[in-house]
Design a protein around this nucleic acid. Structure first.
Lengths: 163, 163
DNA sequence: TGTAAAATGATATGTTATAACGTTAATAGC
DNA sequence: GCTATTAACGTTATAACATATCATTTTACA
């Protein structure tokens, strides 16, 4: 039983791949479906389990990693480096003008307690401030996606910070 | 041949542990020395190699991880989650008023190309802006240490961004 | 329909991290 | 000083995360 939002996202992804001349194969669709349906960040192995248990499709770790690399290259998913997990791009189902993941500088808020991930836009002016504050250090931003360790509202209510 | 800055940092660390009533054992000193002397972020296994090759002390992975956990708990080192490595706290050798790692909200700038890590202070006002921009999301900052994917000046000069 | 490229299968191995349980060493209270 | 208690460390096993390599299958398309 597939969510309608998943259907829409898959349709978008398929269109995207077609327009880029790359193949949106059954297995790639499975992996993306897993990420979309689970609604959370999953590690490669968790995703493998999800595909087996919920979608009834067996994939080897190597296949999962290859497909995740493909989907990331196509900007259909994001790798969350802080937790070594993967999430579907939140903008996939949008019928927005821009390519998925392409023209928005979104940031990942990661709940360190429950591992929920929220993809949000931050004020461009704030990003500029960060860039400016980095200038004297000689370091420059390498990515448009900041990853920020957070507590989500649920976890903040029901306990205290971890670190 | 130990750097004088390392000596100073070790002295600080020793004092810190004494005042906290925890033991700064020989092995813990070895691990911290490795991080200080190497001058870079190291994974647990890289650190194990460093201790063996440069300090001539054999430690098993389990010991390394235990000691890293201890040093992190004592705020003498930082874990770099973006790269799964560890660095000595940049403020260790400072004879500043505050405890090492305690009263400064520093951020880690990580070169995605050469993995160099720089620990910097960011304007408190900037941190406040970030906190404020998170408010509508329901997520709140969990750590005082932001980790930011960057390019260092050397890598920025000699090539293009990775992602 | 033959061929080149892309995708996937299969196996092995490398890398990062923790669990579990036993032994040794340090410290505190007597 | 003795001994109970706790902290540190040793040891082994295994979990979790990730990539290398080469064989085979599928696909696109000339």
């Amino acid at each position: 039983m597939i969510k309608s939002s998943t259907e829409a996202a898959l349709a978008q992804a398929s269109k995207h791949c077609a327009s880029r001349g790359v193949r949106f194969t059954a297995k790639r669709q499975t992996v993306l479906t897993g990420l979309l349906e689970s609604g959370q960040a999953l590690s490669a192995y968790e995703l493998m389990d999800y595909c087996r248990d919920e979608l009834d499709i067996e994939l080897l770790p190597m296949s999962i990693y290859r497909i995740l690399a493909f989907l990331e290259r196509e900007m259909l998913i994001h790798r969350v480096n802080l937790t070594n997990k993967y999430i579907a791009c939140a903008h996939l189902a949008d019928d927005c003008v821009h390519e998925p993941g392409k023209n928005h500088a979104s940031h990942l808020l990661i709940c360190t307690r429950c591992h929920r991930v929220k993809e949000v836009e931050m004020p461009p002016q704030l990003l500029r401030s960060i860039v400016r504050s980095l200038q004297p250090t000689g370091f420059q931003l390498a990515k448009r996606h900041l990853e920020i360790d957070c507590l989500c509202s649920d976890c903040a209510e029901s306990g205290n910070a971890t670190t």
